[in-house]
Nucleic acid binder design. Sequence first.
DNA 1: AATTCTGCCAACCGCCATCAG
DNA 2: TCTGATGGCGGTTGGCAGAAT
Length: 267
Amino acid sequence: MGRAPCCSKVGLYRGPWTTKEDTLLINYIQAHGEGHWRSLPKKAGLLRCGKSCRLRWMNYLRPDIKRGNITPDEDDLIIRLHSLLGNRWSLIAGRLPGRTDNEIKNYWNSHLSKRLKNNTARNKSKCMGESAGKRGDTKANNKRKHKEDNEGISSRNGEATTKTRIYLPRATRVCASSVAKYINNIQSLIGSSSSNAEDGDHTNWGMSGLKVANNGGQAWASNNEEFDGPISLQKDIMLDDIFEEYQQLLKADDHGQLDSFVESLLA
DNA sequence: AATTCTGCCAACCGCCATCAG
DNA sequence: TCTGATGGCGGTTGGCAGAAT
């Protein structure tokens, strides 16, 4: 039994947005805020699917979006985060203020995956004396290649950027509950001093000293003594700490610990 | 100058987790 | 507990512009 589409496609516009539609959407969101995407188009006077409105807002119209070229710093960060997180574009985008997941995904597919592939090809040809791949692919082939690149890039990426094996977590949504599970995994991995985090408890975990609380089923995390808010608000802090911890394990060259750490990410 | 090829990117699609009734 | 609605995500497509032939 297939799910009903998010909205009726009958009589709705598709394709590129006009400036008039953009204006309507911006005006509506400025007046009423984001959310309720399903009913938004009707209220805003748009003949668009709610999903389409959301996407347009998120990827293009939001005032905090940074337009323009990806800087070398951002470029580097994307590569490192991708080696850590895999194709979790929204998480990667969360570390790059003003950049959208779509933009990063496009940037990866059109620039970075190619560059890393070339690096790998160079490395390989050095070792095996083989020439790099030929040109002249059709567009269809290129589009097919996108998929292959995405599927195979992880290990190549790993090869190209670091000697250490990089594990790619399966693409799963990060939500409070899964983060809480993840935290539990980390806690058991690190063997933190207070493993019995009952309601209201909080505990230090990992080398980063991140504090975690399990408060009535809702996970909270903070770098400080005080808990600042729910986990969703702390995603950036979490990622910083996860990344830092990962780097420290890399530096320590403790592969057993590193493997466990990454496996816990996969869990 | 015309045609074909290639790369880029905005937008769409389908799936999945979560929420609400 | 179940079910449908919703929001969010990653993968993919299609069209346009510029480069190459």
